[in-house]
């Protein structure tokens, strides 16, 4: 692979907080702080994401699941010695991957966040937990959907019992939905610019 600054320049310019990536000194405190790290859940920790952005590894980074794993615990931001807003950079990169269409179609978090969750909330102005779960389970078709549901049923029952899951779908719209809709439209308009 060849080093190439063109990707980094695009990120610095277009991804939210992307310009901060320049300032990383590769100390590793972020990756060491990430609670997802010990689970082996990500391909790259934040440090490695930043190094790869600077090295020009566009496909590798934007196509990776690394920045979709962030749980926004903010440990990395708090500890980063260079003051990088790491959580925001990582989310910005994720969003940039969506915008550029580089995100893999199979990336589950991307699909959940940008499709299922989004559609659910936009429709009524409020999240309907049951419908959200169902949508997520059946995202890959009816077969996997059923097995997903069966797999999660105990969790669902537990959540129902402890009143963490409302089985009745939210009907109608939230109060002031019009205002909410206006906000969203404005945001879309701004983003298009």
């Amino acid at each position: 692979m060849a080093y190439n600054l063109s990707f980094a320049r695009k990120v610095y310019k277009n991804a939210e907080m992307g310009h901060w990536i320049k300032m990383c000194m590769q100390c590793g405190v972020c990756s060491g702080s990430c609670p997802l790290g010990p689970l082996g859940a990500w391909e790259f920790g934040p440090r490695e994401i930043f190094q790869r952005v600077r090295a020009g590894k566009e496909e590798e980074i934007l196509g990776s699941g690394a920045m979709w794993m962030c749980t926004s615990c903010y440990n990395c931001i708090v500890r980063c010695p260079r003051g990088l807003p790491i959580t925001h950079i990582v989310h910005g990169l994720a969003r940039y991957a969506v915008e550029t269409g580089k995100v893999k179609p199979t990336q589950p978090t991307a699909r959940f966040a940008t499709k299922v969750f989004w559609n659910n909330i936009v429709k009524t102005g409020r999240v309907g937990e049951a419908a959200l779960s169902m949508h997520l389970y059946f995202i890959d078709g009816i077969g996997t959907g059923i097995s997903n549901v069966l797999e999660m049923k105990d969790v669902a029952l537990g959540m129902l019992k402890s009143k963490r899951l409302n089985p009745i779908p939210f009907r109608g719209k939230i109060k002031g939905y019009d205002g909410f809709k206006k906000m969203l439209d404005k945001a879309f308009e701004l983003e298009k610019k």
């Binding site: 080093y3 600054l5 320049k22 300032m23 000194m25 600077r54 090295a55």
Partner: peptide, 8 residues
Amino acid sequence: QDAGTVFI
């Protein structure tokens, strides 16, 4: 770094 120098 701020000026964009890449450190390898």
